[in-house]
Amino acid sequence: MDFALIGRIWPFFAEAAWVTIEVSMLAIILGLILGFAAALASLSRNVLLRWPARAYVSVFRGTPALIQLFLLYFGGPQIGINLGPFEAGVIGLGINIGAYMCETIRGAILSVDKGQTEAGRCLGLGQAQVMRRVILPQAARMMVRPLGVNAIALIKGSAIVSTISVLELSYTAHRYISSTYKPFEMFILASIFYLAIVTVFSFGVKKIDERVALES
């Protein structure tokens, strides 16, 4: 263990950790938006909404995130989509995690008792109103933790954006492994930052979960 080396280069890892946080948080927000939209669309009675939503989930959960990212970043220019590494990373990760989040949100909505919808409709609420005022508040409670699990998987999965040269934690670790030949030290150093990010994030999810449980 070369502690002198670690002491010298840890600031570069701290800087890279910020990039990991930025990429992850933006991708999580994009994933939540896409996941919600796709979940509502996939529960719609309209085939034109349901079918594309199911296809989206099936395709993006059925293929590697790395391939999706490469398709967007390297293949995008061929169809007129020119993105920088950071933008491509956020969008690629966000679209991928959105498909998983869709399934989580859909599951939570479906787990609300059917009688709730019927009761809401009997009371004269429209379909959209039932969803917004009756179903979603109850489903929200059940989706916070599993969405947190999705999001934590994304934080760790965000390492793949290093392959399209986003200067985040794994990219930095790889670069220093190549230049110092100290894979173990670099692994430990990057791990500390990943574990810290995941731990803080898990704590945040727990707090949100308690808040939501209290309100509903």
């Binding site: 793949i160 290093s162 794994s170 670790a173 030949y181 173990f184 692994f187 791990s191 990943y194 995941v198």
Partner: peptide
């Protein structure tokens, strides 16, 4: 440790670590 870190990083550790 292995549940809290990315697979990609573990891959680097094992590949380059074993060589070392």
């Amino acid at each position: 440790l292995f549940m809290g870190t990315p697979l990609l990083l573990q891959l680097f550790l094992i590949y380059f670590g074993l060589v070392q």
